[in-house]
């Protein structure tokens, strides 16, 4: 897994949350790489651990109650988990930036757009006031906001949802990061605006040769932007691989079920496949494969042994031995 070319390499990451009487294993042994100029999508339903994974990369998991119980996060071959606060401060926002889901709550309502973009620049770089204004204007222009000089004087409430998300992207780009983590940045937006923001991210990524770790629950969005996909379920990666491999020839029952449960026009008149049951509580995950109580292909082993990653070649892995070469996949203890 430790590919030297990867910009970000997460290895066997475990993040637990402890409360008085229980341990929620939110992320439970997750490994994936993000290569240079690559877009990797973390897909999964709410509670699957995708956001916690992203927050750990940013060093933003609150400790306690959170706890990094194991693993490594290698960014440019250095383990971010060994960094102290001030080292991490230099990475965060500077080399790795984050875009959040709700632009209105992530922007401070009492400061102007200009103040907030300027702050992002000044924290990490030395620049005079006029340089900061100039950079801010250029950033707004890059993210497709008309009349940037005027917009810098606006407050967040004066902008529309799409414009606010563009401002968030501008702030993330302020220090020319190598990696941008986008956590459901288009979920709150209209489809037409979503299409614009996705196109914008794509253009900017190419222009600045960044890597993007994109977190979403929307498989439609994934099919538009991803190079590679990691499908998460209950704190583990169920399947990962190149976009087409995962979406067209899914090898894990969970991915297959997710795709089958998407409504669209072609399925009219047919019943949608619906996955029975609900996502398990991270504090009370079933033994063995966490998906086995909801799975169509469950065998005896699934509730007793932990499934191993099965290799389908070309970076396509699925954690389901039952479907691998007629059930010949390996099991862990």
């Amino acid at each position: 897994m430790a590919d030297n070319k990867a910009l970000l390499s997460v290895e066997e990451l475990k993040v637990y949350f402890r409360s008085e009487d229980e341990v929620a294993r939110a992320v439970d042994g997750v490994s994936f790489d993000v290569g240079r100029e690559e877009t990797v999508c973390l897909v999964g339903e709410s509670g699957c651990g995708k956001t916690v994974t992203a927050l750990s990369v940013m060093g933003l998991v609150p400790i306690p109650p959170g706890e990094i119980a194991g693993g490594k996060i290698l960014f440019r071959a250095k383990n971010l988990l060994d960094f102290n606060d001030s080292d991490m401060q230099k990475v965060r926002g500077n080399q790795i930036a984050m875009i959040f889901q709700e632009p209105l709550t992530s922007l401070n309502p009492v400061f102007t757009i200009g103040d907030q973009i300027g702050e992002a620049i000044q924290i990490h770089q030395t620049a005079t006031q006029s340089e900061v204004v100039e950079r801010s204007q250029q950033l707004l222009k890059d993210v497709g906001i008309a009349d940037p000089a005027q917009r810098l004087r606006d407050y967040p409430h004066q902008l529309s949802g799409g414009q606010r998300q563009r401002v968030m992207i501008a702030m993330a780009l302020a220090c020319d990061p190598d990696l941008v983590i986008a956590d459901e940045p288009t979920t709150a937006l209209d489809v037409t605006v979503q299409a614009q923001i996705l196109r914008l991210l794509d253009t900017i990524q190419k222009m600045r040769s960044m890597s993007v770790l994109y977190i979403t629950h929307d498989l439609g969005v994934v099919s538009k932007i991803a190079d590679r996909i990691c499908v998460m379920y209950a704190g583990i990666i169920a399947e990962q691989g190149n976009k087409d491999a995962v979406l067209k020839t899914p090898k894990h029952p969970y991915t297959q079920a997710l795709l089958a449960s998407l409504p669209n026009r072609e399925k009219r008149g047919q019943r949608l496949y619906s996955i029975p049951g609900t996502v398990p509580n991270p504090a009370y995950k079933p033994d063995g494969c966490p998906f086995h109580p909801r799975c169509q292909h469950t065998i005896q082993n699934c509730s007793e042994q932990y499934p191993g990653m099965c290799d389908y070649g070309d970076g396509h892995h699925a954690r389901c031995p039952v479907l691998f070469e007629g059930g010949k996949g390996n099991w862990c203890d």
Binding site: E45, L258, S261, R271, S274, I275, V279
Partner: peptide, 14 residues
Amino acid sequence: LDVSIQAQIINLLK
């Protein structure tokens, strides 16, 4: 709703 739950509710409505 999440994708898997969405399908359950859509089926129920139908």
